[in-house]
Simulated scan of single mutants.
Amino acid sequence: MTDPEVIVVDDDEAVRESLCFLLEAAGYRCQAFASGAALLAAPPGPGAGCLLLDVRMPEIDGVTTLERLRAAGLRIPTIVMTGHADVPLAVRAMKAGARDFVEKPFSDGAILEAVGQALVDVGTDAPGREALARLATLSPREREVLDGLVAGLPNKTIAYDLGISPRTVEIHRAHVMEKFGARSLSELVRLALAAGIDPGARHK
């Protein structure tokens, strides 16, 4: 069987080279592009297994690149990489079809784990099923706090809306992240979206 191919798109040459070296050492084939425009000019074929896509790139950013691939009918498991994670960006990336969202700097182990999981999940809804199971463990108040976080609201606004203190919001937020196994806010948002939470709607 042919080794899975991972496509790396990053405008930083050193990042491209180090990622391809890491991936090839792990048994993957690697193809690298310096920009989203270059990838769109030579879109992935059916043999592509996974896409590692940087967000901050000149001309066409990573999320726009992913949106254009999706509009062209090309769906490939995509891991979005960024050093500037924020909730609106995470929501937009996931809506565009991103499978995972990793923040720079990341460890070799973290990126290999993300790639391996994306390839395992191809053609399945395993991430969604797992996220739904975690969502079911939340208390009603924790779910309300989660909805506020996914909507991009700061803790103080969530506290005001719910009639509780910001400190209480922080406690609920910590519990939610623990139950979801999330290490960052962007990861929590990714899992919440996979569970089907609509960032434009508030839970009643």
Rank of each mutant, 00 (worst) to 15 (best):
I111T: 07
G109C: 00
G116N: 06
L89G: 14
A114T: 11
E113V: 01
G83A: 15
P77V: 11
T82W: 02
A110H: 07
M81H: 03
P77G: 09
M81A: 01
A114E: 13
A93K: 09
A96G: 03
I111F: 03
A90L: 01
R92C: 04
S107F: 00
E103C: 10
L89T: 15
A114H: 12
M81T: 07
L89Y: 04
V87Y: 09
A98C: 07
T82L: 04
G116S: 07
V87K: 09
A110Y: 01
V102G: 00
H84F: 15
D86E: 15
M81C: 14
L89R: 14
A98S: 06
P105W: 08
K104L: 10
A85Y: 01
A114F: 11
I111M: 13
V80P: 08
R99G: 06
T82M: 04
L112V: 09
L112A: 12
I79N: 10
M94G: 02
L112F: 12
F101S: 05
V87D: 13
K104D: 12
P105T: 12
T78V: 05
K104S: 09
V80S: 10
D108C: 06
A98P: 01
E113G: 03
A90Y: 03
T78K: 02
F106N: 06
A93W: 07
D86A: 13
A93D: 12
R92D: 08
D100A: 14
A85R: 00
V102W: 02
A93Q: 10
E103I: 15
G97V: 06
V102L: 15
P77N: 12
D100I: 00
H84Y: 15
R99N: 10
E113T: 11
